[in-house]
Design a protein around this nucleic acid. Structure first.
Lengths: 335, 335
DNA sequence: AAATTTCATGAAAATGTTATCATTGTCTGA
DNA sequence: TCAGACAATGATAACATTTTCATGAAATTT
């Protein structure tokens, strides 16, 4: 049978209250009895029961993370940031995959609430109006990562996607590119929309027309990028640059271009987004936008823990810095 | 204030026992009162408190995962497998990074035990004798992933690393390669050792001598691979194939070879291990060994849940299948 | 009609902690 | 010498559930 606090108390010949005090490092206990209790703890191998403790103190020291897909390296890096901060402040993490599905989202949230997470980090590319409402009414503290509710009623940490996409597109325009193709997500969503908006603004400002037929939608992975490029090349449309939703899509697009006998960046320039580790080692190295995912996770966690431990109720939106990473796949001057 | 079971009971004009019964779907309750209780639950917005429940029933429906580094995609894929199985059986996951550090390992384990995880999955590349002992004495059920205690006293799920490395080396020998270099982990450890053993056995059988100076140790990432290859080329030693600890190392090695004006695979063949998604899209495509990480995670989780819910106490070692993936970086016939 | 079974429900104990309040000495200062 | 302060400790009431046992009513069997 598991040893509990009363067993230790019996062994050390003190009351449970005293044992609890030494376990929790509460000062009002005689040095000698403390010693005796410590002895008893070691002898019995007592480990406090955090569940019972949580029930009593009404805190679990646990954060929930809702994440679309833990096997996506982008999110993983963010989780790592959360993890590290949690380590410092003695919190733990309960993971919950949402798979981009609204039902799973609701289920996940319910479970995290039922398990009494002190706070919850919601990570995603999109956030429905309805779920925003649900989150606002949740009893746990909430911080959004990588998305925001546009009203700013929930706290969030993310980069300015619109402006990042704008900057990247501007750079392409300055380099001399004229015919833009876009490989974006099939599903409309917060992040996707912002990025397209950014590109569009840059083109508008430069007086460049964006041909709607050059905005392709597909799966946001290597294969998706490959097939979008293949399709686009087959269409015979003119274009000299492709801006992709992320680096995987860019890699797929580059391979497809090569398969079709086109050179990147000589014939076609390609940009990605997110800056995976491979983007620096791929040939050609991929021009992209770096989001500080680790930092975003860390900041979100830090905010959330602060919210749990004080009762500041005001929501804050933190804009993390991004960085345009210029590499080979889109040179400074169009070839 | 949070609404609890007694509030629902009052609202529905029944006892808490009855509410508990309908919440837990225990059949012995009249259809009509059940209806009334359900009504009251909806009206009050009651969500059961899993902490209190766990304290009473002495189960948390929570699995702990100890993992060296969640940002390593290999482990992430495994976590995904665990997650999916947990979803089916209504378990949750508490994550805990161990960072390959023995102290962190102990801390992690303690926390997971204190939080009363029903079971714990230990993932890693190595397992010290001492920690094996600690795990064996843990009150929670334990399953190892990717490693095993060599005595088989703990349950585990992993591929046969020795034999995978043997097969891969054999393939290289059959292709005609003669001068083997190895890029492996600086730290000796279970997985690393097994893989080197496997290569060595294949070479021994073929009567090929393995030059100790061609076994290089370094960081197991792209940069490590790059610097090992650079160093090896500078040494002027003869070699025609490099077998790497994983695909990242292989990618680094390939880039370094190219930087030095050598062609892969024409001048030097390179093999990896683990088969990341990029290995199929990199140029050259990387010859490697695929471990079914998702399945390993899923099987481990399934085993663990079974162990938690029955009381079979016998430990089982499950050997997952691996697959040699022949691609361009090591062709079937040496050039 | 009596005895037995079944069904629906409630009261209350138990789960392992923490924290409040009370108690007992011991010490300090007038 | 004694009131008051203080230090160390213990009893015990929460915390929100589940589950056992008891109870009474209704249904069924003898």
């Amino acid at each position: 049978m598991k040893v509990k606090i009363v067993d230790v108390a019996r062994e050390a010949n003190v009351s449970v209250a005293t044992v609890s005090r030494v376990v929790n490092n509460i000062p009002l206990v005689n040095e000698e009895t403390k010693e005796r209790v410590l002895e008893a703890i070691k002898k019995t191998g007592y480990k406090p029961n955090a569940i019972a403790r949580s029930l009593k103190i009404q805190r679990t020291n646990t954060l929930g993370i809702m994440i679309p897909d833990i096997s996506n390296p982008l999110y993983t890096e963010m989780v790592r940031g959360v993890e590290d901060i949690c380590g410092i402040y003695n919190y733990n993490i309960i993971l919950s995959n949402t798979d981009f599905s609204p039902e799973k989202e609701h289920e996940s949230l319910d479970v995290l609430i039922e398990k009494q997470c002190d706070g919850i980090i919601y990570i995603g590319k999109n956030l429905s109006e309805e779920f925003q409402e649900t989150l606002k009414n949740a009893p746990s503290e909430i911080v959004l990562g990588c998305v925001s509710d546009e009203k700013g009623e929930l706290s969030s940490v993310l980069i300015d996607n619109e402006s990042a996409a704008y900057d990247l597109a501007k750079k392409a325009i300055d380099a001399g590119y004229k015919n833009f193709a876009l490989f974006y997500d099939r599903d409309e969503g917060f992040v996707n929309r912002k990025r397209i908006d950014g590109v569009r603004r840059a083109l508008d400002e430069a007086g460049i027309e964006l041909d709607p037929e050059l905005i392709l939608r597909g799966n946001i992975n290597v294969k998706g990028g490959h097939s979008m490029m293949t399709k686009l090349l087959e269409s015979g449309k003119e274009f000299d640059i492709v801006m992709c939703m992320n680096d995987q899509v860019a890699i797929g697009a580059i391979r497809a271009a090569e398969d079709a006998g086109r050179k990147v960046p000589d014939d076609i320039a390609v940009t990605g987004f997110n800056d995976y580790w491979i983007s620096e080692w791929f040939d050609p190295k991929i021009t992209t936008v770096r989001q500080p995912m680790y930092d975003i996770g860390a900041i979100a966690a830090r905010m959330l823990i602060k919210m749990c431990e004080s009762d500041e109720k005001e929501s804050r939106t933190i804009t993390a810095p991004y960085e345009i990473v210029a590499r080979q796949s889109m040179p400074e001057h169009a070839c």
